[in-house]
Amino acid sequence: MTKPRTMLEIAGLEKSFGEVQVLKSIDLKVQEGELVFVIGPSGSGKSTMLRCCNRLEEPTSGSIFIDGQRITDIPHRDLDRMRLKVGMVFQGFNLYPQMSVLKNVMLAQVKALKRSKAEAEARALEMLDQVGLKHKAGAMPAELSGGQQQRVAIARALALDPQVMLFDEPTSALDPELVGSVLKVMKGLREKGMTMLVVSHEMQFAREAADRVVFMDQGYVAEQGTPEEIFGAPKSERLKTFLSRVSHGDVEAEAD
């Protein structure tokens, strides 16, 4: 058996905004093909941690490695190339409203990866097919439902052949009946062996699909384990309280 490859490693990550320390020493490893779930109260630093992984935020200190390469000290001119390896999906989809779905998925392939138009289009259609939206290639984003927009956003990230996918609450902005279609795409990705770090409060999905669950609280990784351990036998009081609040459906009330 080959030793599993660490695709994403976060070591001693700290991040402050001015005086406010938001991340206080985060350590986390994601192996190749693993789906790691991040849960935690609003304001605990989940988004900030994710955004440090492609340096949309600059870490204050600590290291992050993508497939063994330390990305926290590469110069700014190499950031764009690094970001091609890290796909990111946002809570608000962020599709480009003035472009068709197909153009959305092609743009970075052509401009950043320097693929030919024909190659980029073929790849875009393949990815749209994978998320079940090939027939919407010619539509404009505003003509799609939220769930469809989020699947296009996933296709847009996947088309660049990333090594790791980061999801920041991909279903939080969706009507409940649309959540399933996005989760289904994510499950399909996991079966294909994609490495994923997912911030989400879809606990049922975490139980079914996550290899590990990480609980973040006040800028720390407070607890981590298998879904059975985290949901079945939470150790800390904070996690117990958090889980009971989530199961009553008021995550946001946790903000304090």
């Binding site: 492609n54 949309l56 764009d80 190339r81 970001r83 091609l84 890290v86 796909g87 990111m88 946002f90 608000g92 962020n94 599709l95 480009y96 409203p97 003035q98 743009l107 970075a108 401009k111 950043a112 990866l113 956003a153 847009r156 990230a157 660049l160």
Partner: peptide, 30 residues
């Protein structure tokens, strides 16, 4: 233009100039 448009461009490996030229400026112009 919402910050998310810049972030989506940058996160897919586009430079700041490319993001401006292809994504945010066309929206601003409209």
């Amino acid at each position: 233009i919402p910050a998310g448009q810049w972030e989506a461009g940058r996160a897919t490996g586009l430079s700041r100039a490319q993001t401006l030229f292809h994504i945010t400026f066309p929206q601003a112009a409209r």
